[in-house]
Design a protein around this nucleic acid. Structure first.
Ligand SMILES: Nc1ncnc2c1ncn2[C@@H]1O[C@H](COP(=O)(O)OP(=O)(O)OP(=O)(O)O)[C@@H](O)[C@H]1O
Length: 691
DNA sequence: CTTTCACCGGTTTTT
DNA sequence: CCGGTGAAAG
């Protein structure tokens, strides 16, 4: 072999081993910040640069579209530096967008049109509502929707044994009817993208072998959050010539609620015999003090693989823990920190999107720039979804959800009875059904439906001969009346108008053809959040889940309160998942880490008293710098904490409860005796677990 | 058929 | 507090 390429010189020995590794299945198992993603990127470059692979033979799977774009950029840059181009011929996608690509190319085999649309969770919910019996409460409908998604994540169909998914008596029937309606709509939901791809690969050996022939190299990042269907997909992609590598960290598996299962990474060596495991143990991201706290907490989880993780970085300042009265104080504190060092790259992390509000308004008041990642995602706003529904109907007139959404929006006199007549005439195509129903309607409804049909014809004509997609989008907004409708909204009208303008701009890069429209819609459907660039001096507001794979100089982990983070739950598995989320959040920080917790928090319109998160009790107090403690409700108690009482001796906290704002503890003493205490008044002493 | 208003319940987390 | 839902008025 020639001398090492320069990009390999900056790697440590283990990383280099992973990059230069040959054909045998490769499992890279490593803790946070150890350079896993960097190894994937470098390996792609190496395979192209030094071995004879061409970019289009390589498939890399990332967890988010943003991660895919970033990896694409890095690979392009690497290859450019080495005087090669065509880096962008490497296929770097999420599982979902890869499957979408595949299904459009093999539409016939999948029983789809190449212009199929993708239903997001809201769309799926709308469809489920049309198939659930009678008036189930909204909560139950959601539960059923969730069960359907979980079933599809495990590649199950209504014919399979669904007992492991949901015990709801209506579930199998609702699932079946949902799948029928979905098939009739000609569209695909998220789970269906994976499932239909699997179906084609299992049924059509010729297609499978062509696909394996094409992608001789397959790499998967964040494999610990892989679900059952995705794991099967990986097996289907794996042929005798495939160079396969997966990368992940069992301590960072945080998407169980979405069907992810850490067992897929743990069982990888069994599934792919001959697997070579490479462990990366050096963390390049964080200070020693940050890593220490992360390790202490995650160490409480049972059944983890356990990994060594060390860093040559300085120990740095101890992470700080700051107590606040409520979420507004917490936000004011965050703003103050940012003002003191406005150029330090800072991220404010929280468990639930609702928590972003207080931070947003404090930042606005302080006139500090910020970007909000996630939350009311751009493409999920009402006005945007309305216009997208029109566009989707233009690519697929069988799309029930989109049809129902816009047929009478803005109102054109089509109510329940008129629409049930349309429904009676439904073939597969909703416009045909409208045409047939027209004869049976009269008056306002007839006029309204006629108007709708004319509009469709007009916009469909526009699609046939418009140069640029933004022209079509503009025309849909104006001609459909949706633009006017949303502009008239009392206080949000202006914002909605701006959003619609932005949608027009977003369509500009696409050609005004059905292919261009399909591509635009797919990008929107699979990456609903839109892109927000990071910029120096702009604070990031983000959920902990969304920070997967990211890093920031300064990280604020907020809302560390029992019941919020971790959420209260009876399921020990879920507590462990929350603890992994804590680990992910903490290990995003390069230099500075701050925790904050509130004694009281506004929730559902009421202030509720809160106690510090049990995770804080799992950190060695010596590893933290505590600010503002000492007041009432600032002592950190966790269920399981060992305590000593003057009269009763040693025992264990078995329950936390509240009497108004006062914290109470139930303790089971080793003598067998139980006791109830208010730690504010009773001298209970914490003792170490082994005393 | 459309609009308004009173009432209820409570979403973790997202491709 | 806020958004979704359903009944009743217009
Ligand atoms: N050999 C190295 N020398 C210097 N810096 C490195 C090296 N390897 C990785 N890094 C840096 O360490 C940081 C973490 O790398 P990377 O994001 O690839 O880690 P990761 O294992 O994917 O992290 P996580 O699982 O926490 O998302 C990055 O800033 C990366 O540039």
């Amino acid at each position: 072999m020639d001398e090492l390429p320069s990009y390999a010189e900056t790697l440590n020995e283990r990383q280099r081993e992973a990059v230069l590794h040959g054909k045998a299945p490769l499992l890279i198992l490593a803790g946070a910040g150890s350079g896993k993603t960097r190894v994937v990127t470098t390996r792609i470059t190496y395979l192209i640069d030094r071995l004879s692979f061409t970019p289009d033979q390589i498939l890399a799977v990332t967890f988010t579209n943003k991660a895919a774009r970033e990896m694409q950029e890095r690979v392009d840059r690497f290859l450019e530096e080495r005087g090669r181009d065509a880096g962008s011929a490497v296929m770097i996608k999420t599982f979902h967008s890869f499957c979408s690509w595949f299904l459009r190319r093999n539409a016939a085999a999948a029983g789809l049109s190449p212009y199929f649309g993708i239903y997001d969770d809201d769309d799926a919910l709308a469809l489920i509502k049309t198939v659930v019996p009678g008036h189930l409460p909204a909560g139950e409908v959601r539960t059923l929707q969730n069960a359907i998604s979980r079933a599809k994540d495990d590649n199950l169909t209504p014919d399979d044994d669904l007992g492991g998914i949901s015990a709801h008596p209506e579930f199998p029937e609702v699932f079946r009817r949902y799948e029928e309606k979905l098939a009739a709509s000609g569209n695909v939901d998220f789970g269906g993208l994976i499932q239909k791809t699997l179906m084609v690969l299992h049924r059509e050996p010729a297609i499978t072998s062509r696909l394996r022939q094409k992608f001789q190299v397959v790499l998967v990042d964040e494999y610990q959050d892989c679900n059952g269907a995705q794991s099967l997909l990986l097996e289907a992609l794996y042929g005798p010539q495939t160079w396969l590598a997966v990368v992940g960290d069992d301590d960072q598996s945080i998407y169980r609620f979405r069907g992810a299962d850490v067992s897929h990474i743990l069982n990888f060596p069994q599934k792919f015999p001959g697997t070579v495991i490479v462990r990366l143990e050096q963390n390049y991201r964080s200070t020693g003090a940050i890593l220490e706290v992360a390790s202490q907490v995650v160490a409480r989880n049972q059944g983890r693989l356990g990994k060594t993780l060390w860093t040559a970085n300085p120990v740095g300042r101890k992470p700080r823990l700051v107590f606040h009265n409520d979420q507004d104080d917490e936000a004011a504190w965050a703003v103050d920190l940012i003002k003191r060092a406005p150029l330090t790259e800072t991220a404010i992390l929280y468990r639930t999107n609702a928590q972003s509000r207080a931070f947003e308004s404090a930042l606005v008041r302080a006139k500090l720039p910020y970007r909000l990642v996630g939350t009311v995602r751009f493409y999920e706003r009402e006005e945007i979804k309305d216009v997208l529904a029109w566009l989707r109907l233009l690519t697929n007139s069988r799309d029930e959800v989109s049809f129902q959404r816009i047929v009478n929006k803005p109102a054109r006199g089509l109510g329940k009875s008129a629409l049930s007549i349309v429904e009676r005439h439904r073939t597969s195509d909703w416009l045909d059904a409208c045409g047939l129903a027209l004869g049976e309607l009269k008056g306002k409804a007839k006029a309204g439906l006629g108007q709708f049909l004319d509009l469709y014809a007009q916009l469909n004509g526009a699609l046939m001969n418009c140069r640029n997609l933004s022209v079509l989008v503009q025309q849909v907004i104006e001609d459909s009346g949706l633009g006017e409708h949303h502009r008239q909204n009392e206080d949000l009208g202006e914002a909605k108008e701006q959003n619609l303008d932005e949608l027009v701009n977003a369509a500009a890069p696409y050609p005004g053809t059905i292919e261009g429209l399909t591509q635009f819609l797919e990008n929107v459907e699979l990456d609903a959040a839109g892109t927000l660039d990071e910029q120096p001096g702009v604070t990031t507001l983000i959920t902990m889940h969304n920070t997967k794979g990211l890093e920031f100089d300064r990280v604020l982990v907020t809302g560390l309160e029992d019941g919020l983070f971790p959420r209260d739950t009876f399921d020990p598995q879920e507590i462990e998942e929350e603890r992994r989320l804590f680990y992910v959040a903490v290990t995003r920080a390069r230099q500075e880490l701050l925790f904050s917790t509130c004694r009281s928090r506004l929730q559902h319109g009421k202030y509720q008293d809160r106690a510090p998160s049990r995770f804080l009790a799992e950190i060695d107090p010596d590893s933290l710098e505590v600010v503002g403690a000492g007041g009432r409700g600032t002592e950190i108690w966790a269920v399981g904490q060992r305590v000593f009482h003057d009269d009763f001796g040693v025992g264990t906290v078995v329950k936390k409860w509240y009497n108004g704002s006062e914290l109470g503890l139930d303790v089971r003493f080793d003598s067998g005796r139980m006791g109830r205490f208010m730690p504010a008044y009773t001298p209970l002493e914490k003792v170490a677990a082994d005393e």
